[in-house]
Amino acid sequence: MAIPAEKFERAPKRAVDIETLRRPSLTYWQDVWNRLKQNKLAMAGLFMIILLVAMAIAGPFMQPYTYYEQDLGDGKNISPSGGHWFGTDELGRDVFVRTWYGARISLTIGVVAALIDLIIGVIYGGISGYRGGRTDEVMMRIVDVLWGLPYLLVVILLLVVMGPGVLTIIIALTATGWLNMARLVRGQVLQLKEQEYVMASQTLGASTDWLMSKHLIPNTLGPIIVMLTFTVPNAIFAEAFLSFLGLGVQAPVASWGTMINDALVVVLSDEWWRLFFPAFFLSLTLLAFNALGDGLRDALDPKMRK
């Protein structure tokens, strides 16, 4: 049944301009945007994110307090009221101002960490899965090694070598964050590249880049987006862990992660506002990202195109 190799003829690269077979790519994003706009939940998510960012910028100025100013006398542990909208903490600092000041840090960290994870993870996983074979083997063993190393040890060393700073925080946060993403993308690509339409495209002479960016990655977007929405809270809590080691933001600056950490006591006492507000806005952020993510996935899904 074997057909002799010489009977095959290599299809000339780009013999047909593939571009003409698709719709113009300009309208692709417009298309996505149009579909996204129709998704009420996604738009609500987007609106919420914009609102949260606006509050992170403006919030600290909306009250006559600073995030560090203390009132050790009667100003401690005041419950939410007209003077202090979100109450005050155990050193008499305004929780409203601290929450929104913390939002700046936590939102930035969450988004930056997610973006870096996305970029490294998708490229690394994509290459590993697509190339397969020995490349995949080697690349995945590197992932195993990075995964196996004790994170705490790595961070302490990083801190000692580089000293505390923004760059150190970002490296520490992304050192292992992208591993899950990489394995996820690789798993998907391994599966997808054996699918008929990929083979078809290959046979038509599509280049690797083309295959990756037009077929493989878009079809992996669902899990990628889900993974991303998980990276955000992970990074926010990881920052609190880094603070524990002396690497995160330094007191008296607070992030949502450290505020939640420090407010644990309210589980047993009555000062619920210290835990509630940072946790509530963190939940809201995640909810917004998830809603937007779901909508984006639907909007990007070529199969959903009408």
Partner: peptide, 22 residues
């Protein structure tokens, strides 16, 4: 440490940085 930092700021007008470590 946070309380001390504020006291130095208030009484001496000196900014002190805090650094915690493992």
């Amino acid at each position: 440490a946070e309380a001390l930092q504020q006291m130095w700021k208030k009484h001496l007008d000196v900014d002190v940085k805090l650094q915690n470590s493992e």
